[in-house]
Write a protein that binds this DNA or RNA. Structure first.
Lengths: 339, 339
DNA sequence: GTGAAAGCGCTAACAG
DNA sequence: CTGTTAGCGCTTTCAC
């Protein structure tokens, strides 16, 4: 316990050799026992257990990975660490943990170059698989190379047409389409706006498409309020733009934050919801069912998306599936409430 | 491009040996060049660069880690993947990426046993350091063992008294104290409630303590509304309990969600803020400055907390600091607005 | 200034 | 059934 003036003493960790020695067996037997790769007699098992216990031995995963040429780890690459991805991260984290894998997290920050960097790091760490929310078509070729080198890849939340890899995305196009039609047919609204469309976001293209096809189908005018990046300044601009808009009787919000902006603005102005203006929000946080009026929302089950994706990934990693890419399109639910 | 009926062909990745061979040098030289460990003549550098390029060589980090007995990775262990930790994750992710490290993410789910499991996995992967939001005193000894074996450890957001490791926590005690006093002295409120206290959460003990010391100092009655876990059911209970409470003239919320509940309830009831009831929220999401009235909040700069923690960690990892544990207590700011 | 060779801790043939 | 042995790909003394 007393130092020698040079700082901490670092205990060298025990190796399988140490365990073998103490148990009076060979390293091979220790390895076989730990990994359950072949029969080991009860007597030796006991001895080994005891030795492991005494030494407090933990296998060195690095050495194991080097030998096996694969790491019990998967990489998760998302554009930004935002709350949007949390539900997916949760389901992924659970499955990964249950299977004894670890999750390496990286963000591309929507930057093509950085995306590639992170992917490169993942591969240098020999991850068994990668879950990626791609940020650019440009890396499709590179990702296919990774697959060729034996790394399983699943696209999450965004799907590149030119990338031959499993994918799990939600049907935002259909969801927005249905929501718009619902406003018109069931609520009898005539001037329905798509609020908060951001042309820089890949997913928003789908939302726009769904909206446009719906208004066309209903013979109405397309009313789109654009916005830009997700910083406070832009949000304030959106807030004031929306607040001086009083010709619409229906609002479809493209994101959760935009829904907050819209609701806040309407309440401030004393606009009655849904009599004067009907609102359909995006995403379904707890409070949407607590507030007055309870708000109708489009809800993507992102927890489940993550779950599906990680299932596809492990099907590949563990060799249960080796065929053509599977593409899962998840329905986004329209949760009807009062707004 | 044409398969042979047996499925994918997996290309073996090039090794430093391949590079050396192609460049006509030895592995030692390749290694030395890549890591800048010793002088290499320009001529050889060129050759090596060319070979690396041709082969598209990426060093195998696993082999590197085995040799060096340390992985360019750090582990981040948080209780749950909630939005509370996102700002910290962002700053940590940035620094880690900049330094060429990777971040392994794990969650304890507030479970003692699982916390230990995750820590064990981190060590088996030979992470260079660990950032941990501890969930129990019980693992303090184990964590100290990790330090003894050479792994740097920094506690984040929560600090165990009996754990000799660097820490970065925010001064919630002081923040709640100040907020309470502010309500009484500056707003002239007499019945100030601490709303949403959850005795099961370590941090809430501090909040309670700060609140109690303040009401005592002001000679007021302590009014604490308790709540339990973070599920929708409990939240609804809290909402209704708070909604039938009309004897208070000031509310201090313990979390962001609780703030949403309180504001929503007061608005529903048509209670004027802050004339009838003054509200101080916790956490500072964008909308707090957009709504009417703009809400006064206690704001922990969690991005900065993560930054500080990761700085301490790398000071240890890279040997710039080897002394006694450092404990950073970060001020939580009271952002005065209208509520 | 550069190369040869040993070894990090583990697994998997191959013997016995 | 269990032990011996040969690497996995890299870094690093130690010679040249």
């Amino acid at each position: 316990m007393v130092g020698d003036g040079t700082g901490k003493e670092i205990k060298k960790l025990p190796t399988s050799e140490d365990v073998a020695q103490l148990a009076g067996v060979s390293r091979a037997t220790v390895s076989a026992y730990i990994n359950g790769r072949r029969y080991v007699s009860d007597k030796l098992k006991k001895k080994i257990d005891r030795a492991i216990d005494i030494l407090n031995y933990t296998p060195n995963e690095i050495a194991r990975s080097l030998k096996l040429q694969s790491n019990k780890a998967i990489g998760l690459l998302i554009p930004v660490l935002s709350k949007f991805y949390l539900p997916m991260m949760r389901s992924i984290n659970e499955k990964v943990h249950d299977l004894g894998y670890t999750m390496i997290l990286g963000s591309s920050e929507e930057d093509l170059q950085r995306e590639k960097e992170v992917l490169r790091v993942f591969t240098s760490k020999k991850v068994s698989g990668i879950l990626v929310v791609p940020c650019s078509y440009k890396n499709a070729r590179y990702i296919e190379q990774l697959q060729d080198s034996g790394i399983a890849v699943v696209q999450l939340n965004r799907k590149l047409d030119r990338l031959e890899a499993d994918s799990v995305v939600s049907d935002t196009n259909g969801a927005i389409h249905n929501a718009t039609v619902h406003m018109v047919k069931a609520r009898n609204k005539k001037r329905v706006m798509l609020m908060g469309y951001n042309p820089a976001v890949i997913a928003d293209l789908d939302k726009r498409a769904g909206y446009l096809s719906a208004v066309e189908e209903c013979g109405l005018e397309a009313l789109i309020m654009e916005t830009a990046a997700h910083d406070p300044g832009e949000l304030a601009k959106l807030f004031s733009a929306f607040s001086s808009e009083n010709s619409v009787d229906g609002v479809i919000c493209t994101t959760r934050t935009n829904m907050e902006v819209a609701l806040q603005s309407l309440k401030n102005r004393g606009v009655r919801i849904p009599e004067e203006v009907s609102v359909i929000g995006y995403d379904d946080p707890i409070w949407t069912s607590l507030v007055d009026p309870k708000v109708t929302v489009i809800s993507e089950d992102r927890y489940k998306m993550g779950d599906q994706a990680v299932n596809l990934l492990f099907d590949r990693i563990e060799g249960r599936y080796t065929g053509e890419p599977k593409h899962i399109l998840m329905d986004a639910e329209l949760i009807l409430r009062e707004s």
